[in-house]
Design a protein around this nucleic acid. Structure first.
Lengths: 224, 224
DNA sequence: CCAAAAGTGTTCCGTCTACACCCATGG
DNA sequence: CCATGGGTGTAGACGGAACACTTTTGG
């Protein structure tokens, strides 16, 4: 197959931009590089794409390796291919954005890999072009949060409306009016009230809601 | 650098999704593959990414080679990396979307490469996953046309409001109210009327407008 | 003189926004 | 009993959508 062999191959990696939500803040999972080049620098977690796996598979493999979690929401952010983006060799990287519920994530695994949840407003300089990747991921999140049910991925299965509102505020970076927010939520029938009451976060108790996936699949219309 | 060499490299290509606007229709530039695998199938035009060029550079190189045009509007659509997406070898491809003014494109070059402008509603089955790429590109276009000044790339420097409206209708796939459209355009100060009149497309004559790039750069706010 | 495209305002309706007070309970 | 977070409605502003006729001129 000489047609292909005239051309050169390159390394391709995936980098995972893992967002979580904690203390009413949007957080990013980063670690310090254990290898050269860039040993010690803050970095997203990534991995090379194998010869026998798709980009999506590679991204899920890396994330699963890190967190033990499967079926996580992931979306491609884009391919990053500047020649010298990696200080070692020429590597093209495809960034993927994942949204996880921090509570579902085994903290022992987090510590095992030396990873940290860092608040987005306090994000340090990251390795290579990883800051760019994060920036693009946030732009995408902001653009999509009003037309796709993303936010539930950052919350437990059962959540209160106040929690949900805080997720929106964290992603949009601005405050939201409580009454207007709840008014709109009520019009969305796949966000349904379970009869349950959460007594942990408030004395009075707050109604617990959940995202009805099937109902959404039947009529995937979402406008917030 | 054993850290890298443990992993396998892959071929990476770019594919250009070239949109044009003609006869009030959005058109796509495609050709028939001249090489195996897939010889004779309709296809986007692509090329391998060289060891010494960035993804953007590769996309521009391919487009420039095809059309002779430089400084064309291009935007990354995404990376496509299913294992068997290319029937020959494992190739990961990054799709780029370009918007060009058909009139600026030398038709001799088009014929030289055997390319055709095909209306989007009559798009044939394309090679590999190219239909998916096109679909994603259109989704992106639709989403962005109201928040970014894309449409001017499909028109000559001077254009009439009716032409501009037709571009919107072609991209959105639905009719637009003339009076409402013009009302909104008037509020955008970087779409400015030159004093000129176009007598080609109408007997009465229509005012020619242009996109003032500098004015937009000063205040890049765009809401249509 | 007529066909063909350019150009022009107003009204209505629905949506978004701003805004303040009572409720229930644990400590 | 009080501090804390949960829960509720309305009025006014704004923006988008619907809608029809006059103008110009080349052929």
């Amino acid at each position: 197959m000489t047609y292909y062999s005239e051309h050169s191959k390159v390394w391709v990696s995936v980098d995972c931009i893992v967002f979580g939500f904690e203390n009413n803040k949007l957080k990013l999972l980063i670690g310090q590089r254990q290898m050269d080049p860039g040993r010690g620098e803050w970095s997203l977690y990534g991995g090379f794409v194998g010869a026998e796996e798709s980009l999506e598979d590679a991204a899920h493999r890396v994330l699963n390796h890190l967190t033990g979690m499967k079926k996580v929401y992931m979306k491609q952010v884009g391919a990053f291919g500047a020649i010298d983006r990696d200080p070692g060799e020429r590597v093209i990287s495809v960034a993927y954005c994942a949204l996880i519920n921090v509570k579902d994530y085994d903290d022992k695994l987090r510590k095992k890999y030396g990873l940290q949840w860092v608040s987005l407003d306090a994000l340090p300089k990251l390795y290579s072009d990883h800051n760019q990747m994060v920036k693009k991921a946030i732009t995408l999140l902001r653009r999509r949060i009003n037309s796709e049910p993303l936010s539930f991925n950052l919350l437990p299965k059962l959540f209160t409306l106040t929690q949900l509102q805080h997720v929106y505020e964290a992603i949009l970076g601005e405050e939201v009016d409580k009454r207007n927010f709840r008014k709109r939520i009520k019009q969305i029938d796949f966000i349904e009230s379970t009869g349950l009451i959460d007594k942990v976060t408030s004395k009075r108790g707050a109604a617990l809601y959940r995202f009805n996936k099937k109902m959404y699949a039947d009529d995937p219309t979402f406008r917030l």
